[in-house]
């Protein structure tokens, strides 16, 4: 005797709700995502020497000799850079740094920014230094003693 299973009625899968859900997901991801291309500049790195955003207090015992190969770049409130009292344009700063790096590849650049200068000015100065081939750039900040 053969038992016949009752035939199932054909299961109908409707595609429309699935497409609806997909479209909602699509719109969600399009709206919530940001598409700005983002990069980063390291400010604090593990293993780096203490970055010392504060200049060390000057030793009174022995006059500090200026470290060879260190160039101090001041960043004014308007974003202009000053090296050794000479205000420099971006191109002049790039040329000066390139010349320093050519003479001494281990040149260290120390940037002393004014608190009024904005982040873009600092980032632009860092970019000029990086493009000139400087590999060691530090940012210092004057801090009043408590």
């Amino acid at each position: 005797m053969r038992l016949r299973r009752s035939r199932r009625t054909g299961l109908v899968i409707t595609m429309t709700p699935m497409v609806d859900a997909l479209l909602i997901l699509l719109v969600f991801f399009m709206v919530t995502s940001t598409y700005l291309d983002l990069d980063m500049i390291p400010m604090v790195e593990r293993g780096a020497a203490p970055t010392g955003h504060t200049l060390p207090a000057p030793d009174t015992a022995a006059p500090r000799t200026p470290e060879a190969g260190t160039l101090l770049v001041r960043l004014g409130p308007d974003g202009r850079t000053v090296v050794r009292g000479q205000p420099l344009t971006e191109a002049a700063l790039a040329a000066a740094l390139t010349a320093r790096v050519a003479a001494n590849p281990a040149t260290r650049v120390v940037i002393l920014p004014s608190g009024q200068a904005n982040a873009q000015a600092l980032v632009s100065t860092l970019e000029i230094a990086a493009r000139a081939g400087v590999t060691d750039v530090r940012v210092v900040r004057l801090e009043s003693r408590p």
């Binding site: 500049i41 504060t54 980032v123």
Partner: peptide, 18 residues
């Protein structure tokens, strides 16, 4: 940045856009 470093954070980066 100084304050973040001061509480022991060892990796702080500044976001820029090209």
């Amino acid at each position: 940045v100084t304050a973040l470093e001061g509480i022991g954070l060892t990796s702080v980066v500044l976001v820029v856009t090209p």
